[in-house]
Amino acid sequence: MPNRRIFIDKISQGWMIASLATILLLPVIIGLALYMKANPLLEQQSLSTLLFSSEWLPSQGKFGFWPFIAGSLYVTLLAFIFAAPVCLFAAIHLTQFASKKLIRWMYPVIDILAGLPSVIYGVWGILVIVHFISDILAPFFNTSSSGYSILAGGIVLTVMCIPYMLNMLIEVFNTVPIGLKEASLSLGSSYWESVKHVVVRKSFPGIISAFGLGIAKAFGETIAVMMVVGNQVKVSGNPFDAGYPLPALIANNYGEMLSIPMYDSALMFAAFLLLVIILSINLIFRYLIHKTTRK
């Protein structure tokens, strides 16, 4: 019965298009919904006051997000500084030097590291990193710290970012044509020299993008950071002090946000801010990656 077949085809095609459209429209819908919730606050105060004032007194209607933005930037920066060299060298090792046997071992290791829930990283951070900082690292630098600090947040984030960045770096290095490397080797360069001058240079845009996406990932991480970072509202340059990143602010205060006027708007504004920052970083660097890895 051809009619019935065509009828089924029409229906299922409609279902397919509808699902694809829903998913592709999702970021727009999320953005609009959060923006509409944040709008009352935006009408009341200017964007620059919201972003750069450090006065955070929700009960008096003062919402300055700077301590939280600074906290987020600080932990992200630390995580990036720790994670970037490890990822770069590990990716070089795994794509250029490593034996087949090691690679067979490494693949599940990266997968599992990427798949562990953030709350597990948080528990690990509390058990290990926090004690390490308060008992060993802080006395070593002649300061005291409870251990629940920006540095602890940075270290936990480092471990969480590594598999994410590493996976993309491996993908980028694998797209470098093998002939280029062989040409450089045949001209008498050592293995390391051909990596340094050919592989890394050729995949430079890809490396930058992988780092950028790692930063975006770190910026939005919530639970693990919130468990070890201390959650105190202040701006401080000392990594042994407690901080309060933006995602932790949203997660910590959802309970009371409906009881204080404008508080819900403020938290939704924070979520909107996260979405805009992370989505734009993603769109920019993913574009670079797609340009370099797809033919």
Binding site: P27, L34, K217, I278, L279, N282
Partner: peptide, 9 residues
């Protein structure tokens, strides 16, 4: 890019 949106959002 959607994959990158954090779960808190």
């Amino acid at each position: 890019a959607l994959w990158g949106i954090p779960s808190i959002v």
